[in-house]
């Protein structure tokens, strides 16, 4: 692989030698960096950087795959914000977020806080809470479809025990979105909990201990000390959780296909429909750009918040 020291000393002693020069080039930082970065950087440029700009370009064109893209100005953006179905998808995504994020985040924080004590079986309980994160969205969706099944589903059976009549969860326009929200919260508690558990490590124990000695109850301790100190981590979870909802395609594909009556038609589903359903790539691209802008704003907020946390 490399020349032995004695050999190189010998070469140097002989004076200028082509082998020495080649070795020096081969061993230069620039050459090794070029070698190591060439493939990863080319791939990422093709898959992550070029697509952002090409997507932006496509959003100003009419493109149906078989003819070259034709420039149409802002027509696609006008469509996104005025067409009832397309605009509804933005509203639905926001509704989905508002219904899932506050409850999902609060539950994950409470569970993390309770698991952050030295109680018996805590590792086992953490594993159980994390299980839905490991399962694929297709499998999760399949299981929940069966649980939501109107005739023989588990959920309607439990409700029957309470005297509530069976519901058509995924086919009921008023319940479909909530049904998806329940699955989303169930599937995300584990990953949010892990972030909270990491954040809780940074809270100085003596602060909480001091408050406890001064007579603060566990609840007061949680609300008045833990939550304010965890504020940056909570914001981070809220943002990443929101982004994951924006990206949530599989659940909608498997459970509702955007229905009933477009009630679960979110942006990512509408993009998919426009591109692979109606072959209107320009419209899909415009909606993708809107999605990307929202995601970028949210990510920048989360980076800022993280930096604040590190500075504190």
């Amino acid at each position: 692989m490399s020349l032995a020291v004695s050999e190189r000393v010998a070469i140097k002693a002989e004076g200028v030698d082509w082998r020495d020069r080649i070795y020096r080039f081969y061993n230069s930082q620039a050459f090794v960096a070029f070698l190591f970065l060439l493939i990863p950087v080319l791939l990422l440029a093709a898959l992550k950087i070029w697509p952002v700009f090409y997507n932006l370009y496509l959003s100003f064109t009419r493109y149906e795959l078989f003819e070259p893209p034709r420039f149409v100005g802002l027509k696609n953006y006008k469509y996104v914000f005025t067409n009832k179905t397309a605009f509804q998808s933005i509203i639905n995504t926001l509704l989905f977020t508002i219904e899932a994020v506050p409850i999902g985040t609060a539950l994950a924080l409470i569970i993390a806080k309770l698991l952050d004590q030295s109680i018996r079986g805590r590792v086992f309980l953490r594993t159980l809470y994390y299980l839905p994160v490991v399962s694929s969205v297709v499998v999760s969706a399949m299981i929940w479809r069966w649980i939501y099944s109107p005739q023989h589903g588990l959920l309607n059976f439990f409700l029957g025990l309470l005297g509530i009549p069976p519901q058509h969860w995924l086919n009921d326009p008023n319940l479909a979105l909530i049904s998806l929200v329940i699955v989303t919260i169930w599937g995300s508690i584990g990953s949010n909990m892990v972030i909270f558990l990491a954040g809780l490590q940074d809270i100085p124990r003596d602060v909480i201990e001091a408050a406890r000695v001064d007579g603060a109850s566990s609840l007061q301790n949680f609300l008045l000390i833990t939550v304010p100190l965890m504020r940056p981590v909570i914001l981070f979870v809220v943002v990443t959780f929101t982004i994951s909802i924006f990206r949530n395609f599989g659940l909608i594909f498997m459970l509702t296909q955007g229905g009933p009556f477009n009630r679960t038609n979110t942006m990512v589903w509408e993009v998919y429909q426009n591109v692979f359903g109606y072959l209107r790539l320009g419209r899909g691209a415009a909606l993708s750009v809107v999605m990307l802008i929202i995601v970028l704003i949210l990510t920048l907020i989360s980076f800022r918040v993280l930096r604040e946390r590190q500075g504190a």
Binding site: Q29, A30, V32, A33, F34, F36, L37, V41, L44, L47, K48, I49, W50, P51, V52, Y54, N55, L58, I243, F246, R247, F249, V268, V271, Y272, V275, L281, G284, A285, S288, V289, M291, L292, V295, L296, T299, L300
Partner: peptide
């Protein structure tokens, strides 16, 4: 390793972490 353009390439890649795959599905 130290090489020319390191920070530029590094931050270009850092930025792409913010872009979810779903919005790039068309290109």
């Amino acid at each position: 390793l130290q090489f020319r353009g390191k920070m530029l390439i590094f931050f270009a890649l850092l930025t792409t972490m913010m872009v979810p795959f779903e919005v790039l599905i068309i290109p």
